[in-house]
């Protein structure tokens, strides 16, 4: 049963992400990415990481993909993405060999079964409490400082996003060039 679920989700995820990487249309790529994220949350549920799976759906498919969809309103997404992909033999050879090496590195334990998992050394076992409770306990005791730092980082990112996008929203920057914008700013200052 677990094997069926694993292979099903693997095929879905790899297929979706392959569409993202090789699709010509940005809208298709975004939809495929959202689908792949949902499938990834399936792995988290299989790995007994219930809370992580829920967070994956809420944060990735809820917030991040919504943000991308919002950002894509600014770009012309109905047209196919025109890219100047040079079919350079060296680049192709490099990325294919990087992929092969990476998979070999990770799958070597298949062949030589030298990596033994020693669960007895672990201090932080999931004892008794189910996953969301255990996550909460660890997050607010051992990882409290990191949690607060992440909160500050998200706040900084939010402010940065607001400032970057909303600046000069009353002027259309798509049709005007930079000097003209600066000139308009001078005009506004003069008017004041």
């Amino acid at each position: 049963m677990e094997a069926i679920a694993f292979y099903l989700f693997s095929v879905i995820t790899i297929g979706m992400f392959a569409i993202v990487v090789f699709s010509k249309n940005a809208l298709y790529a975004m939809s495929a990415l959202a689908g792949g994220m949902i499938a990834i949350s399936g792995f988290f549920f299989m790995l007994d990481a219930d809370f992580l799976g829920a967070v994956q759906i809420i944060v990735y498919t809820g917030a991040v993909m919504a943000l991308y969809a919002f950002g894509m309103m600014f770009f012309d997404t109905t047209k196919d993405v025109k890219e100047n992909i040079k079919e350079d033999k060296i680049v192709n050879a490099l990325w294919i060999s990087a992929v092969v090496i990476l998979i070999v590195i990770v799958s070597v334990p298949f062949v030589s079964d030298h990596i033994m998992l020693d669960a007895s050394t672990s201090d932080y076992k999931v004892i008794g409490a189910n996953n969301p409770q255990a996550v909460g306990i660890f997050l607010f005791t051992k990882y409290l400082v990191q949690f607060e730092l992440a909160a500050v980082m998200l706040l900084v990112a939010m402010i940065a996003g607001i400032i970057l996008v909303s600046k000069k929203m009353d002027i259309s920057l798509t049709t005007t060039v930079e000097e003209k914008i600066e000139k308009e700013e001078f005009d506004i200052k003069d008017a004041k």
Binding site: V59, Y60, Y143, L164, V165
Partner: peptide, 28 residues
């Protein structure tokens, strides 16, 4: 999961937080 340790999940949480910030700033 295979270690029976929650630290892996914790790191994954912080990666998600980093990814969310990256999207906000990068998309801006």
């Amino acid at each position: 999961k295979f270690y029976g340790d929650l630290t892996g999940q914790m790191v994954a949480f912080f990666i998600i937080a980093v990814a969310a910030s990256e999207v906000a700033v990068g998309l801006g």
